[in-house]
Design a binder for these strands. Structure first.
Lengths: 206, 206
DNA sequence: CGCTAATCTAGAACAAGTTTCAGACTTGAT
DNA sequence: ATCAAGTCTGAAACTTGTTCTAGATTAGCG
């Protein structure tokens, strides 16, 4: 009954051995690679297992479903993104602009691997309750990136609401782009539009 | 090669016979019923076929995939919603409040059949490019409902952007609620927050 | 009415996610 | 070094979405 079931970074990761950690990495790598090639559908569990040299049963022990796997893949990529952004923070003047700048930068990164983006985002929004903890973790990570961009130490509830709405817009706009129903320009406009909410909550208000 | 492939209401519906129309209705009814019982997973194509007294192949002729079927189900429900709202329009004073009121009313309707909501919303966000026309139709319908609530004849581009962001928030907030990651209260706050965008674009500006 | 094309049916077959199982291998503790 | 518990492997089985096929039925037309 004692499964690895590892979360990527922080909390309750039940201490993997070195070989297990290596397996986990191989799996995530194979997953990302297949996803980058053909999106959600191209990530086939049998193939992931084969490419990462792991038995199918083992794959399922590490990631209890395809969606779990892809959400974990997303956690992984987000981590990269966060460290990247930290290294070169957004340069604009207002918080709203800095958030928009950061999201647009992330968006451009996703455009470089649209299939990978497809796989991750579809998994994220398709996830049911059994994946909630993992999806929540992704959400927290995203929130952290946005708050970083705002450069606030102590966000008000109103500001947190605005951030939540920005995240909603971000995810949903990505989906419309990925399914070909919105252009890149359209996504840009939507992001800029929603970021105006920040101005609404920012200035003189405790 | 000539398939029914019917859209629900307006445009290019290739004229179904009476029996075909009846089949289509039976299918949508069975779909909604199963969805209401157990959500996305409970809508199983074989069962839909059986319940609507139609062969599996026929079901697939009418709706080329499970997602198509559920999106069509959503179109159907949205139509209801729209006529309902028209009969008793929102009563608040400002456009922003009227939109929030309308969306909250829709939200309460969804709460009455959370499983059905789950099936429809998951299908909507999981839909790939092959379902784009149908998803787009749903989006247009939603936009129409929101614009109705705003009581505008001639929305500016900025207002249309705001509406788009509201839709994004609406969908994404529903997902977080359906997957148990946000409370009803939380969704309410998010809707109210995003509706403030309307005030930003409304008053004195041509 | 009688024909022809399109549609519908029943059921098999296929694809990919998921589960299961018996046996081999690792690990950690004694 | 040895044993027990936990893990991993390979392969088969199961589930559900989707496709295919051959034969009935239906619809529209002359």
């Amino acid at each position: 009954m004692t499964a690895p079931d590892a979360r990527s970074s922080a909390q309750g990761a039940p201490a993997l051995t070195e070989r297990q950690e290596a397996r986990r990495r191989r799996i995530l790598h194979a997953s990302a690679q297949l996803a980058a090639r053909g999106g959600f559908d191209a990530v086939q569990m049998r193939e992931v297992a084969e490419d990462s040299q792991v038995a199918l049963g083992t794959l399922y022990r590490y990631f209890p479903s395809k969606v779990h796997l892809l959400v974990a893949t997303m956690q992984d990529q987000l981590q990269h993104m966060h460290t990247t952004v930290r290294k070169r923070p957004p340069s604009s003047d207002s918080p709203a602009e800095r958030v928009a700048e950061t999201l647009m930068r992330a968006f451009r990164a996703l455009q470089r691997e649209p299939h990978l983006a497809d796989a991750m985002v579809r998994a994220l929004t398709f996830a049911d309750r059994s994946v909630s903890p993992e999806v929540d973790q992704v959400s927290r990570q995203t929130t952290a990136i946005i708050l970083d961009a705002m450069e606030l130490d102590d966000p008000t509830p109103a500001q947190l609401s605005a951030v939540r709405v920005i995240e909603h817009t971000w995810h949903s706009a990505l989906i419309t782009w990925l399914s070909g129903r919105a252009s890149i320009a359209q996504v840009k406009i939507d992001i800029e539009t929603v970021c105006k909410l920040i101005d609404l909550t920012d200035p003189g208000r405790q």
